[in-house]
Amino acid sequence: MKARVTVTLKNGVLDPQGKAIEGGLAALGFAGVGHVRQGKVFDIELSGRSAEQARADLAEMCEKLLANTVIENYAIEIV
């Protein structure tokens, strides 16, 4: 089973890297680009568990390591 975990900054948390990327896109001439927020994607292989158990385990992984829940949200997808 493969899962994808996406970690993004919470609303209200400043993202200087996203701002810099925004500036880079503008410098390349892309018009109509609004705010850019940078995040992280983790592709994780899992075995020996049901999809339901996988979701529970992934949530625990996010809480304990993959995300810093002070500043980040996470989303779990079984792919």
Partner: peptide, 17 residues
């Protein structure tokens, strides 16, 4: 210490990058 939850808050990338 912030990552371990022993202190509040978080340390992020410097504003000036």
């Amino acid at each position: 210490l912030t990552e371990a939850g022993l202190l509040p808050g978080a340390l992020m990338r410097n504003a000036g990058l």
